[in-house]
Amino acid sequence: MANQNLRENDEPLLIADDLSKSFGKIIACQDVSFKLYPGEILAIVGESGSGKSTLLQILSGQQSSGQGRVSYRMRDGVTRDLSTLGEAERRFLFRTDWGYVHQDPAQGLRMAVSAGANVGERLMAVGWNHYGRIRAAASSWLERVEIDVARIDDTPRTYSGGMRQRLQIARNLVTQPRLVFMDEPTGGLDVSVQARLLDVLRNLVRELHLAVVIVTHDLAVARLLSDRLLVMKGGQVIETGLTDQVLDDPAEHYTQLLVSSILSP
C-alpha cells in the first residue's frame, strides 16, 4: 500500500507541455511547461492581464491552447492528452476527479437550490441514489468547511461571501477529486474571512492529499498555501521555484518588484 502510494506520487498528475495561446496580437501565454505531482500545490502569480487566468482555463480544458499539450494521469493510471478526451469523458473528469473553485461563488454554485443539494449534486451525478446517504455526506462536508449543519436547507443566497466560498469548496471536494483548480479563491473577501477560508483550505488540501493549481495575485495567499510558484508576466513564466525561495530570494526584476510591493508579506 505504502509502496504503491510512493509510486503513485512519483509520477506527475498533470503535465503542461509548451502551452501557448494568443488572441490576435495579444499573447495570453507562451511556452508554459511544468509538471504537477499528486499532493502538490502550485500557485500562479502575476498582475492582472499576465495570462494566469487564461492559463488556468487551458489547464482545466475549458479553453483550447493554440499550441502545446496538457496531459493528465487518469484514475486508471493512464496519462492522456486532454485534447483527445471526448466531451463526455472530459465533463466526467471535471465533476469527479477535478474541482474548479471560481472567484465568484455564484459562478460555481447553484444559487437557487439548497446548500445540501449543492454539495450532493456531484454525488447524484455519479449515480448516488439514496437520499439519506447523500444528505449525510453533504452534512459531513458542511462540517468540514465549518458551515453550521442547521443551514443545510438554506440556499447560498442567504449565505455570506465567506460561507459561499466554503460551500463551493465543499461542493467541489465531495467526490474526492485529486486535482483542484482555484481562480483567486480569496478575492473579494474581508481579511478575517480570508484567514478562515485559507485555514480551511490548507487543512483540507493536506488531509486529502490534493494537488492544486491556484491562481492568485496575493503573494501572502501563495505563501500560505503553495509549495511551488510560477511567476507570470506578459504571458510568460519568468520565474519558478519553491514558494519561499521565490518570495525570499527573487531572482527576476519583475519578481523583485512584485515582492517589494507587498504591504505585509
Partner: peptide
C-alpha cells in the same frame, strides 16, 4: 448527465 434531475427531487 442527469444528476441535476435528482437535485430537484432532493430539494
Amino acid at each position: 448527465e442527469y444528476g441535476l434531475m435528482h437535485v430537484k427531487l432532493y430539494e
